[in-house]
Amino acid sequence: MKRYVISRIIFMLITLLIIISFTFFLMQTLPGSPFNDEQLSEFQREQMNERYGLNEPVPKQYLNYLTNLVKGDLGVSFQYDGRPVTGIIKERIGTSAVLGIQSLIFGTIIGLALGIIGALYHNTTIDYASIIIAVIGLSIPNFVFAGLLQYWVGVKLEWLPVAFWRGFEYTILPTIALSMFVIATVARYIRTEMIEVLSEDYMLTAKSKGLSRFTMIWRHGVRNSMIPIITIMGPLVVSLVTGTLIVEKIFSIPGLGDQFVDSILTNDYPVIMGVTIFYSALFIFVVFVVDLLYGVLDPRIRLSGGDK
């Protein structure tokens, strides 16, 4: 087990390095520079380039960046005149995390419920309704939901605030908008899996014990159908992250996604790099946690891992 974890960590670091290098060189090929402002003179521009090390040859810049990265230094922002990137991430991440985690939890719970109900009433109207919700959630992008929610719930009905981030009621609409995709994905997977689990022999054993339907489904069905859900948790987290980029912008939420979009628009290389690295590391870490979680849910995997 220990050996497994160590080797996984090494592979994670290698993956991260590849992503960093790729993003770095990709950004060099982008047109424009951070100091495009027409009010700046040629001299000022060169001064800025020198100050931030942009006049050095690209390989040198790359090496500099990596050395600093190892020290935990992600550079300074061009846009905000020397504010360290790590500081920007720290300041903004809290908001995004609240939004993301809230959406993930809400989405998973609703998705589980929908999927289980669909499976229990397999091939009935209830089942078809849950499938339709799933299809809608998967096919309509979250910024459309965001807009619709803002208009109907916020503007027309005036139930909830339309934008900004000043308390719990401000989080509700963006959370719902973001979690639609999670609901749909989880519901779809759990429905298929649950239908399969329901026909397993051990469910018949449970029934022959005379357990109530609820106990049967909850204790014997749900946990066994959760195992494949864990697999899609990785991609789900990614979809949430990409979702925040736009949803935060729409709701004017001061999160990391909002910041990321701004930085791209102003060619703020260090912030783009920093946030990309942060997101990638987050994703790689989630995938790793998911693999470990398998063992928690499925004792068969736990043991074979322990033997190694």
Binding site: K209, G210, P299
Partner: peptide
């Protein structure tokens, strides 16, 4: 009513012990 009979009055052993137990409990 059946629930009060199943498991208490009449119970059942199935063919394949590999699949008739819940693998995660």
């Amino acid at each position: 009513q059946m629930r009060k009979i199943r498991g208490t009055k009449i119970s059942m052993v199935f063919q394949d012990p590999m699949t008739s137990l819940n693998p995660t409990m």
